[in-house]
Design a protein around this nucleic acid. Structure first.
Lengths: 224, 224
DNA sequence: CAAATAAAATCGTTGAACAATCTTGACATA
DNA sequence: TATGTCAAGATTGTTCAACGATTTTATTTG
């Protein structure tokens, strides 16, 4: 009974598989993805693979150049700034307008607690993924499927950038307690304060990521 | 020199062509799009058409059912509520954080003036499209490519819903002056007031659309 | 008239083919 | 040596034909 009953379409499955590899860093920014090579590697036809490419291109994880092929998207300072702008717009508003009994609040708290436990174990991978869960839950406060889907996409793009950065401790550890403060303010009904705290959080996080990114980028300007 | 030098890829062109037909109402909600029929009708291969279908499905304009084909998305009360939730989140925040000298402000004003001119001519189509321009300009205040792209998608979905509604005068005419008031507040640096006015606008517009939509929907519950 | 079954249509996916375009490398020229 | 030309070679863009899988329609049967 562990198998999938509903045979999902092939292209979305391929896209998911590729997305995982992109986020895991198995496929590196700037790298070209050969249709011929990948289609035999993944044991599917070129046509099916091209459908998957189109999906991931639309998500911003791949870049498509006509008659030249698809490449893993190369994060840039501009894209990071853009992504944080999106996050501030959506997350802060979701938090400001949230009502404190929303089911997503429980998920926020749970993510905070799990992140704290992982932090004591120095399990930075889990700290990072619980941080993602926390922010996805914030967006979920707005009760909008479309915002959720859009945010998932933005988060995947951001994780592509994170892949370039070396130090997950620096990247995620400092924010566990800030997250805790946010959820506490929210639970207390202080949505405006929670939102303000989140904005400060995001600004600080953006600065950290940009600084780390610039250090990489100036050594290796074109992302090869 | 009027021709396109860069031969654009086929799939995006097909997607654009279909998108236009969807928004124009040539393809009706719930209608099934046969791969075989459409591919001969548009004189392209089934494979290319399928790539275009994937794009439009990801945009929310088409719905894909495994082994059954693609259908024109059927707007629902839930989808309209969701779309307006997105609009309030993004547009109000963009306006609240805007700075009044942003180039998009000029476009907002221009759209208002054109809409007013069109209103005196009772050219409701232009009134509607200038209204779309106005709101796209608001989102542009946030200076984010990703928000712009996302909003364009949401707007297309909303226009699909509008296609079902009969009366463009009722739908757009009352909002020309509200738009004017918003741009004036913004130009005066009163971003908070502009944002509040927009929120009231959107709530009222949502109510109008939902009311009109329910009248249609109860006569024709499952969209043909 | 309902249920079961057979036939037809449609989608899902593959593989091969060929045109269009880009890349590479050899070669000639200044 | 540096540079520009030009012909392979490789890769993408697109089409076509085929066939298994699934759904829909039509037919038969009880």
């Amino acid at each position: 009974m562990t198998e999938q009953d509903t045979t999902l379409a092939l292209a979305p499955r391929l896209a998911e598989e590729l997305r995982d590899k992109l986020i895991a860093g198995e496929l590196k920014p700037g790298q070209r993805l050969s249709e011929a090579a990948l289609s035999v590697g993944m044991d599917v036809s070129r046509n099916s693979l091209r459908e998957a490419f189109r999906l991931l291109t639309k998500e911003g994880l791949l870049r498509h150049e006509h008659n030249r092929g698809v490449f893993v998207a190369t994060p840039s300072v501009a894209s990071i700034i853009d992504i944080y702008r999106v996050r501030r717009t959506i997350e802060c508003q979701a938090l400001a307008k949230a009502y404190p009994n929303h089911p997503a609040v429980a998920r926020m708290r749970l993510a905070v607690e799990r992140a704290r436990a992982a932090r004591s174990d120095k399990d930075w991978g889990t700290v990072g993924s619980q941080n993602m869960v926390f922010h996805a839950a914030i967006v979920d406060l707005a009760d909008s499927q479309r915002l959720n889907a859009f945010y998932a996409q933005i988060a995947a793009e951001l994780r592509l950038s994170f892949g370039l950065l070396a130090d997950p401790e620096l990247l995620h550890a400092p924010y566990v307690d800030l997250n805790a403060a946010i959820v506490e303010k929210l639970e207390a009904g202080m949505t405006a304060e929670a939102s303000a705290a989140l904005e400060a959080y995001l600004t600080q996080s953006e600065r950290t990521v940009l600084a780390a990114f610039s250090r990489i980028d100036e050594r290796n300007p074109s992302g090869k």
